[in-house]
């Protein structure tokens, strides 16, 4: 159905301006040569980009963020792929409940998860902060792995697997040679989505800071509370570039319909 409705088109245009305008403004202000963020900027300079690399805390927290997101992702894949396979391969009693348990980190407020991790895993069980940070990030990545790989598996014809098994292939070999190649794009997409979720996370990381341990978003948050120079704008631009690349790859692998079908 096609309707030409100029009012609706104009309204939508304004809403998109509201959505994307602020991100553009950040990008523009990151080139400010002065020490205070201004829009429009008073000139053009890349010195605040240089400053990112000069401030030790940004580099070290960036490293922590990358390590935690990557390592957490690996653990989430190791825990999540077998679970997603079991949840989609056969029907059994309690399947829906188990599925809900695996997706529950999406429903429980992140700030509550972060707090309980600090209170029990760090303080009561004496886990090191770095390990707890990793555990927390693994928890929030699991639902993405389960959901995206789950929907890939739901589209997979398990008769192909049966065929391989009946021809004498072992279960494990069949999984790696037949099932895995078929859900490859789902796995890569889920890894990227989970990575972004973890890399941008504030709620959990907020409670998991200690001597020498903090993530980039938390460092940015602390910086913004104390300084108002364009460094954060410059970092934001770099983060948006990474996001854009990730999104492009996810779109290639899953299509945008993944986002519209909840």
């Amino acid at each position: 159905m096609k309707t030409k409705n100029p009012g609706l088109a104009l309204f939508s245009f304004i809403v998109y301006l509201f959505l994307l305008g602020p991100l553009l403004i950040i990008a523009v202000t990151s080139f400010e040569p002065g020490t205070v963020l201004k829009f429009p900027p008073t000139g053009f300079s890349l010195k605040w980009y240089q400053n990112i690399f000069d401030v030790e805390m940004f580099m070290s927290t960036f490293k922590t963020s990358i390590i935690v997101s990557l390592l957490g992702n690996v653990i989430a894949i190791l825990l999540g792929v077998p679970a997603a396979y079991a949840l989609n391969r056969v029907t059994f009693r309690g399947k829906d409940t188990l599925n809900a348990v695996f997706l529950s980190p999406l429903l429980i407020p992140g700030i509550v998860l972060g707090f309980t991790l600090l209170k029990y895993v760090v303080i009561t069980f004496h886990f090191p902060i770095y390990t707890s940070l990793l555990i927390g990030h693994t928890i929030i990545m699991l639902p993405f792995i389960i959901r995206v790989i789950g929907s890939s598996l739901a589209n997979f014809d398990f008769a192909v697997e049966e065929a391989a098994l009946s021809l004498g292939s072992s279960r494990l070999a069949t999984f790696f040679k037949v099932v895995l190649p078929n859900i490859k794009s789902g796995i890569i997409a889920s890894v990227l989505l989970a990575f972004l979720e973890s890399f941008n996370n504030v709620d959990i990381s907020l409670f998991m800071t200690g001597p020498g341990v903090s993530t980039l978003p938390i460092q940015m948050l602390t910086y913004v509370e104390n300084y108002f120079d364009p460094t954060i704008a410059a970092i934001s631009v770099l983060l948006m570039l990474i996001t854009a690349v990730f999104m492009f790859v996810i779109e290639r692998l899953l299509g945008l319909t993944y986002f519209t079908k909840q």
């Binding site: 994307l20 978003p217 999104m247 945008l256």
Partner: peptide, 15 residues
């Protein structure tokens, strides 16, 4: 519309 969704909430609030 999805791009801002995947962008850090710190960046978006900061803007």
């Amino acid at each position: 519309a999805i791009f801002p969704l995947l962008t850090s909430s710190v960046v978006r609030s900061f803007s």
